[in-house]
Amino acid sequence: MRAALRLLAIAGALASAPVSAQAPDGRALFIRPDKGNCIACHQLPGAAGPATKADIGPPLDGARLKGWDSEKLRALLEDPARMVPDTVKPPYGRHRILEAAEIDRLVEFLRALP
């Protein structure tokens, strides 16, 4: 029984490996008020982040982000007004709220959402 549980735990860890290997930094950037603070406007699915009532931006999940490749997401985060002129999303790259490498980690986090 104990061995079976251990196997199950290992299997669970392996199954989540692609997300957890990249998510911590991106998740922190998504949540931290002094970084992206994306959580103030967007909700995340399930256990991907803290539950909030935020609804200024759409809720984010794998299905919604399906059509967004990394390049398009990176461009959106860099300067969202170029895609949506009246958006209230901050220009994370253009105003240097996030470094290029941080935007990359955020993109990885978003693309790994369930």
Binding site: A40, K53, A54, P90, H95, I97
Partner: peptide, 24 residues
């Protein structure tokens, strides 16, 4: 500012929506 908001971004364009757990 760095966030590129106007007062109106929150209090007109997004009024009544939730920023975190607070309605604007």
């Amino acid at each position: 500012g760095q966030q590129n908001y106007a007062c109106a971004s929150c209090h007109l364009q997004s009024a009544g929506k939730y920023f975190g757990n607070t309605a604007l």
